[in-house]
Design a protein around this nucleic acid. Structure first.
Lengths: 262, 262
DNA sequence: CATGTGTTGCGCGTTTCGCGCAAGACTCTG
DNA sequence: CAGAGTCTTGCGCGAAACGCGCAACACATG
């Protein structure tokens, strides 16, 4: 494989990331190849998720690797937005909230943007990005080591910060949830953190779309407290829901517009 | 003016921001108008900076209004990149670094992406975003309250986290720097934080392009320590540079490629 | 040398774009 | 109520950009 082509593509990427915007013609002159070739390069880079194609050129993709943005975000997106909307509806102006890391809570953060004065603490980079720059929301990051996959903060720093604060409501995500064992995560640091988060708040909400219910993908667990609301979507089975209610856990089923259905 | 049109444009914006991507045809069907109208809407929204046009549609622009992204980033961009490159060249694989908030240190973070195993702590959201998702860099956020303008974290949580850690090198930004008083910032919390950051590290670098030298835009100050390197660009005057060296502060002047010039 | 992979330039038909124009809807004003 | 002004919309048209297939070429490998 000619390295010349790879070099050019890398240079294009570099250029796009620094300039922010680059046109096909510009690039074709710059590298002395035909617009066709540039188009092919851009198509490839776009597919790799490192660029966004525009009319006549390309622009740098801001922020996160596409993987977490569309691939993981696309999965059950409508459902998650429904959960987020309902959850946002529970929030009262002026409250102090705690947001977990993950896409569900990221969606919640997005909904919170238009909710006026709030105080939001979070352990998730996604939520931070959603709330960054807002004037009427006091955003706090609890700090910690950033986990590359989930884009969440964990570790002693996070836990120490948590211990200095309490919240009106806490919203958690999960890799899996069961009625028996609670929240399932890949990592023990995460479950310990979630336990701590649950203890620091009067109300705890677990946002988990139907596919998460009953799943046990890993082996680290955080038990659910008594005062806890599980929020899920319409495709949850009766059996799944019943398992939780039997344990005394309130279950809220919402549709994709955020309306409660049961 | 027909409010119907404004409503549609707002809805388009909403849709684009939640879906991430929207096609012209899709939108034209959704709102029952011709593609022409949609195109005009998109053009207007694009010009307003709330949207990016793609071939056949539009995509949501991540993050905040273009102002902070390009306008502020564009200002002295080449110079900042030069500083960042030189600074990245100082770093040795495996070290522990501390990065301040701001665009200069954001640019540094960008350069650090390809530098292999590192441990980077930061008080800036920009740096976090640059380093998010990397496997071979351990990223730590010190936490704190997020200041909307600078996208930096401040407050007791940040300071407490800092006190538990030391670093091999610290890279600071500044709103202004003078030889007499040191670093100038808008906010006392920021200067206190910077003082603390300087104390936690063996080497301190201050990244400040020429326009920052001698500036006193605000009235909160953080004095420079003895072991301190000021990194600036070629457009710095001899007088400015001399003022610092006279005080015993090492000054490094770099060109836009990151090569040292003096 | 033959083979295979990857890249490039070119031509083609298709899609999308931007612009100008005329018609319609609305507001304001006399 | 009439008329002027503003804004918007749909349509048609030429220009630009797009994707695709084809043939030629470079380069590494067996």
């Amino acid at each position: 494989m000619p390295r010349e082509a790879d070099q050019r593509r890398e240079a294009i990427l570099e250029l796009a990331h620094t300039t922010g915007l680059a046109s096909v013609e510009e690039l074709s002159l710059r590298f002395d190849v035909t617009p066709s070739t540039i188009r092919r390069d851009l198509a490839r880079l776009q597919q790799a998720g490192s660029l966004a194609r525009t009319y006549g050129g390309a622009m740098a993709i801001n922020g996160r690797p596409e993987s977490s943005l569309r691939e993981r975000f696309g999965e059950a997106y409508e459902a998650k937005r429904g959960l987020a909307r309902w959850a946002a509806g529970q929030v009262v102006t002026g409250e102090s909230l705690l947001l977990d890391a993950g896409t569900s809570t990221g969606a919640l953060a997005h909904e919170l943007r238009r909710m006026g004065p709030l105080r939001v603490s979070t352990v998730g980079l996604t939520a931070l990005q959603e709330l960054a720059g807002l004037e009427d929301v006091e955003v706090e990051c609890l700090g910690g080591i950033l986990r590359p996959v989930s884009l969440g903060f964990v570790g002693p720093v996070t836990e120490a910060a948590l211990e200095r604060r309490t919240f009106d409501r806490t919203f958690l995500g999960a890799d899996g949830v069961t009625a028996e064992d609670g929240i399932c995560e890949a990592d023990e640091r995460q479950t310990r953190l979630k336990e701590l988060m649950m203890r620091r708040s009067a109300h705890v909400y677990v946002l988990a779309h139907a596919a998460k219910l009953g799943r046990r993908p890993f082996h680290a667990w955080a038990p659910l407290p008594d005062a806890c609301t599980l929020v899920t979507d319409e495709s949850a089975t009766q059996a799944d829901v019943a398992a939780f209610t039997r344990r005394g856990i309130e279950v809220v089923v919402v549709d994709s517009t955020g309306q409660r259905r049961s």
